[in-house]
Computed example of a mutant assay.
Amino acid sequence: MAYLQINYYSQILGMDRIMHVILPELSDHNPQWTNTDLQDIPVLYLLHGMSGDQAVWSRRTSIERLVRQTPVAIVMPSTDLAWYTNTQYGMAYFDALLQELPEKVATLLPQLSRRREKNFVAGLSMGGYGAFKMAFSSQQFSYAASLSGALMGNPNFPERSTWQNDAYWRGIFGDLSKFEGSENDLLALAQQQTQQQTNLPKLYAWIGEEDYLFENNQQSIAQIKALGYDVVFETSHGEHEWYYWDKQIERVLEWLPINYQQEKRLS
Rank of each mutant, 00 (worst) to 15 (best):
E64C: 02
T34D: 06
S113W: 01
V72T: 10
V43M: 07
L26C: 04
A96G: 00
A82R: 14
Q69V: 03
Y89F: 11
A92P: 07
P110K: 14
A73W: 08
S58M: 12
D80H: 12
G52C: 05
L108T: 10
M91F: 07
Q32S: 13
R65K: 08
G49V: 13
F94Y: 02
S78A: 12
P77F: 05
Q32T: 06
D80Q: 15
N30Y: 09
I63K: 03
R116D: 09
Y89H: 12
L26Y: 05
N35P: 04
V56R: 11
L109F: 15
A73D: 08
L46T: 00
W57C: 08
Q111S: 15
D16E: 15
L38N: 07
D40P: 01
W33N: 04
L38D: 13
M76Q: 00
Q69S: 12
P71V: 08
T61Y: 03
I63N: 08
D16R: 10
I74F: 01
Y45C: 07
W57Y: 02
N30M: 09
A106C: 05
S51M: 13
V56P: 01
Q69H: 15
M15I: 01
L23W: 02
S62Q: 09
L38R: 08
E25G: 06
Y45D: 02
S62K: 04
L26W: 07
I74Y: 02
T70L: 14
